[in-house]
Amino acid sequence: MLTSQRKQYILEQLARDGQVLSKDLSVRFEVSEDTIRRDLRELAAAGRLQRVHGGALPSSSAVATFAERKTLKTDAKKTIARKGAELISAGQVVLIDGGTTTSELIKCLPDDLQITVVTHSPSIALGLTDHPAIEVILIGGRLYKHSIVTVGAAAVEGIGNIHADIFFMGVTGIHPEAGLTTGNYEEACIKRAFSGRAAETVVLVSPEKINAASPFVIGNLGLINTVVVDSGTDENWLSSIEEKGVTVVTA
């Protein structure tokens, strides 16, 4: 079998099963694990998958630029955001991560909702400037332009002074075994810091994030309490998430 044919099979199995294991592929193709690792390395370099220990997972498309991500699964994001907004109660302190789905979330907040929003996203803060009843606290730091959020020591210090009721975390991938991942190391640190200051952590999961992975780990699924998903989400995936103790809310 040609290398190109083997790589195509790997991608097809990845799309079908949500993961591939180097050892199993080695047996299947009767080649060494070193050969399989080289295939996975080259596919990863081309952005076709995310290598993990022992194999690979689908690469998340949610690591694209903010402008590009705004065009991904827009209808699903709006539906999920509306359901997520129902989890917010008056009087709460709400941490909102940067991202395209959380940008839809703030559009769904009622005009009479009185809450305090804490965010490290200038876009989220600006999106709430005309809301009549929401107080906004913007966490400072170095601007990470790719995601339009602040990161760094100043951001972590600011987060440490907050006790929040709920945190809406943005991720680029969520997988039962690989956990919660994102495309930038400092962003992962900020997300963990936010989660540690909230009584409840929620992830709004649009379809392109499911069973996908990115290079930097935020944490395992024990870090979150709830996921909000589209009604068409695969039942087997939902069951695997619930087995980890995470509550599933379907939009």
Rank of each mutant, 00 (worst) to 15 (best):
E242T: 07
V52I: 11
H120L: 01
A45I: 00
E243V: 04
A193D: 04
I162A: 09
L128Y: 11
P176R: 05
G196L: 02
Q5A: 15
S123W: 10
T233F: 07
I134N: 06
R82I: 03
I218S: 06
N225W: 01
L87S: 11
V229H: 12
R37M: 06
A199G: 10
G84V: 03
T79P: 00
T100A: 10
R51L: 05
S26M: 09
M169Q: 06
G179F: 12
R6Y: 04
E242N: 02
L143M: 08
S206T: 13
R82M: 00
R69Y: 00
K70G: 07
H53Q: 11
Q92H: 05
V20L: 11
L25G: 11
Q8V: 00
T226K: 14
S61D: 10
D130S: 15
Q8I: 02
I36A: 04
Q19T: 06
K145G: 04
Q8L: 09
T79H: 12
L21H: 14
A76V: 12
R38D: 00
E157H: 15
R69H: 03
Y9S: 08
S239Q: 13
T102F: 05
C189H: 06
S214C: 08
P122L: 06
F66Y: 10
H120D: 12
S231W: 12
G99P: 05
M169Y: 02
L95Q: 05
Q8G: 11
A81V: 03
L49K: 02
V94G: 06
I88Y: 13
V118K: 06
W237P: 03
E104G: 01
N236E: 15
V202G: 06
K107T: 13
A154L: 15
T233P: 07
C108T: 12
D111S: 13
V63F: 03
K73R: 15
F167G: 10
A44T: 05
R28Q: 10
R6F: 10
G98Y: 11
A56W: 04
V149A: 02
I124N: 07
G140Y: 08
K191A: 14
L43D: 07
L72Y: 13
R48A: 15
T65D: 09
G170L: 04
K191E: 07
A81R: 02
S206Y: 14
G170P: 04
V117C: 05
A188Q: 11
T201I: 07
S239K: 14
S231G: 13
T233I: 09
I174Q: 13
T79D: 02
V63W: 00
K209C: 09
L113Q: 09
M169W: 00
E30M: 07
F168N: 04
S89Q: 14
E187W: 09
H53W: 06
G18L: 09
T172W: 02
E242V: 01
E187Q: 14
H146R: 15
L87R: 08
G55T: 03
I162D: 00
L95K: 02
R69I: 04
K78F: 00
R192A: 04
I10M: 15
E177M: 03
G18V: 14
S239C: 00
L21D: 12
G98H: 08
A64M: 14
R192K: 13
A46L: 14
E104R: 01
N220E: 05
